[in-house]
Structures are given as structure tokens and as C-alpha cells.
């Protein structure tokens, strides 16, 4: 009998409790539906860390127009407006054939260098079901020095104009603001001025970025030449700068000790000492055009 009396109360209570927690119940029903594998994006703001290529590639169907300037040396003084009177320029185009494969071409005033490159994404950093700590891309480029031959007495071959770069871009985005990239590099020049000069040079690059705000980061990049004649005669390239992103444009403003812009040249032909003020102001401007639609 007691039970009979209490039953409606119990039922009512049960109903009430259910009412109170209904929203959370519904929420719990939805669960946590994270995708099985989450791929890392935006390790760097654009396709360059500073001078060298970053792990970023144009997305499928995106065309990038990139224009780079390295001005003259800061220590030239006020007469040359601290180097702004001179400039080495490169302009280039990069295109994403697929989300993994990108190609590009460019032309630089330094040695009237034409260049073409391929960049292929081998591994993509991801977390979740498929856990991959780093992204790795292969980068390969060929440069054609198109200066007139200085020495016309000998037979000059076209192949002597060529230089090649092979790099592995190994990058990790540690968190939303900090990314690092290691760049083991091989530079091969078919033709070098002296017999003793190295045709093939090995170098190790390291670069990183630290986001200061949502749309601005500070970037740094260093290339260490492995011991050899080239390392004895040339300087390691060091660049420090800022990335500023404004919608479809990325502005990279930096200071560097490298005059050349292409990886075919700046890794092995940098002549400038930061401590002596052989510093060049420079910038890259990257504009993205979306040609293909997803």
C-alpha cells in the first residue's frame, strides 16, 4: 500500500530529473565527434620560411605570384639610403597541381638566373588515428645562369649553366604559434670557376616561426655549410624577418646577409657578415589567386 502511494511521487520525480538534465543528455548523445585523423595545416604562413622554401605548398588550383627584393647593404650609408638604391629581384609563379604536388618558375636578376622547381609532399603531420609527428616534402630545383659567357675563347656548354638543388623539408608545427623546419640540402653546380671548387655542396638549414599575433609572425632561418672549400670562402646565410598576412597577400619583411634570392645561389654564394653590418633589407610579397575551385 505504501508503495502504491509513493509510486506517483517517484514517477513524478523521475520525470522532473529527466527534464532538468535533458539538454545535457541530448548533448551527451551527440558525443565527441572528432575526425579520426586530423591533419595539420598552416605550419607556415606562406611558401617561404624567409628565403628558402617552407613546407607550405599552394593548394590544388592555387596560383601564387611571388615577388622578392633584396636591397643593398645597410652599411653603405645614407648616400645609398642604406642600400635601398640597389636591388636584386626575383619574381616567380607557383602552382598547385594537386594538394601534394606543386611546381614553379622564376627569374632573378642575380646571374640572370631562371629557375624551375617541383615540391612534393611525402608526409603530412597529423594526429589522431594516424599519428605523424612531422611533415616532409621533397624540393628539387634547377637553375639556369643566363649571363653572357665571360670567356668566349673556350667551348662553353649549355650544361655549364645549370645548377641543381635537392632538399628535404622536414617541418613540425608544435602548436598554433610555433613551427620549426629542418632542411638538409644538396647543391650541385655543373660548372664552378676553379678546379678546386666544390661542384657539390652539402648544407643544413634550420628555420622557424613564432606567431606574435594572429596575422603576424617572426621568422628566422639559418643555413650551415658543411666543412669544405665553399664553407671556408663563403658565409652561412642568416635571415630574420616578419610575416604579415592580409587576406590574399602575405608580406615578408626581413634582414639577411644574402644577396642572391634563389636557393641555387644563396646557400652557397652568400658573402656578408652580419657583425660587420653586411646586412640587406628585403621583402617577399606573395599573392594567391584561386584558379581551380575545390
Amino acid at each position: 500500500m505504501n508503495l502504491m502511494k509513493r509510486l506517483p511521487v517517484i514517477l513524478l520525480l523521475a520525470g522532473l530529473v529527466q527534464g532538468v538534465s535533458a539538454q545535457d543528455d541530448l548533448m551527451n548523445m551527440l558525443g565527441d565527434d572528432k575526425p579520426a585523423t586530423e591533419y595539420t595545416y598552416a605550419t607556415f604562413k606562406t611558401t617561404r620560411v624567409v628565403l628558402n622554401h617552407s613546407i607550405q605548398s599552394p593548394a590544388k588550383g592555387d596560383l601564387l605570384f611571388i615577388i622578392s627584393h633584396h636591397f643593398g647593404r645597410l652599411n653603405q650609408g645614407a648616400y645609398d639610403l642604406f642600400g635601398l638604391d640597389q636591388a636584386t629581384i626575383r619574381f616567380g609563379l607557383e602552382y598547385g597541381i594537386s594538394d601534394r604536388l606543386a611546381i614553379g618558375i622564376g627569374r632573378s636578376t642575380y646571374k640572370k638566373l631562371y629557375d624551375g622547381f617541383v615540391k612534393f609532399k611525402l608526409l603530412q603531420q597529423s594526429s589522431g588515428e594516424k599519428n605523424m609527428p612531422v611533415s616532409i616534402s621533397y624540393f628539387g630545383s634547377m637553375g639556369i645562369n643566363s649571363l653572357k659567357w665571360e670567356n668566349t675563347d673556350r667551348v662553353n656548354y649549355f650544361s655549364s649553366r645549370l645548377s641543381f638543388v635537392h632538399q628535404l623539408l622536414i617541418a613540425r608545427k608544435f602548436n598554433s604559434s610555433f613551427s620549426l623546419q629542418l632542411t638538409p640540402t644538396i647543391v650541385h653546380r655543373n660548372f664552378v670557376p676553379l678546379k678546386e671548387d666544390q661542384n657539390t655542396v652539402f648544407a643544413m638549414g634550420a628555420g622557424g616561426r613564432l606567431k606574435l599575433t594572429q596575422r603576424m609572425s617572426v621568422n628566422a632561418e639559418y643555413f650551415y655549410l658543411l666543412p669544405g672549400k665553399t664553407a671556408d670562402e663563403f658565409d652561412n646565410s642568416l635571415s630574420i624577418g616578419f610575416d604579415i598576412e592580409t587576406g590574399g597577400h602575405v608580406f615578408q619583411l626581413f634582414f639577411t646577409n644574402s644577396v642572391p634570392i634563389n636557393e641555387n645561389a644563396f646557400i652557397t654564394e652568400t658573402q656578408g657578415d652580419w657583425l660587420k653590418g653586411d646586412i640587406y633589407f628585403g621583402f617577399n610579397i606573395t599573392r594567391t589567386f584561386t584558379l581551380g575551385r575545390k
Binding site: 575526425p35 586530423e38 588550383g61
Partner: peptide
């Protein structure tokens, strides 16, 4: 992250 845009950028 599941929002899909016309442009990757």
C-alpha cells in the same frame, strides 16, 4: 574544421 570553403586559403 568541417566547414568547407570554395578557396583553400
Amino acid at each position: 574544421k568541417s566547414f568547407e570553403f570554395e578557396k583553400a586559403l
